[in-house]
């Protein structure tokens, strides 16, 4: 279990560094996407698409929208991905 979690964290970090040009050193689990990392609401759809591609699943417009909207920190992303993968 532990290794798959680390794997999720690794992959999310790769997305944030490669696709959003963020500094890996700043990607602590409690860093907030908007305030700490400088992303804004206009980035959210691009982030969803990048995560879908990285994890090869589809984020549903019906089921996942509220969860996606509630994402604030990097840790929220990990939790969302882990829950999503457990679902599949």
């Amino acid at each position: 279990m532990e290794s798959s979690h680390n794997n999720v964290e690794e992959k999310v970090k790769i997305v944030l560094v490669d696709e959003f040009e963020l500094d890996e050193a700043e990607l602590s689990p409690d860093a907030t996407l908007y305030d700490d990392l400088g992303l804004d609401s206009l980035d959210s759809v691009d982030l969803v698409v990048a995560l879908e591609k990285a994890f090869n699943f589809k984020i549903s417009r019906e089921k996942d929208e509220e969860t996606i909207r509630a994402i604030r920190t990097i840790n929220d992303i990990y939790d969302f991905i882990n829950a999503k993968q457990a679902d599949i």
Partner: peptide
Amino acid sequence: VKPAFFNRLKG
């Protein structure tokens, strides 16, 4: 513009 958007266009 972030690479994420360019990658989205490409895809």
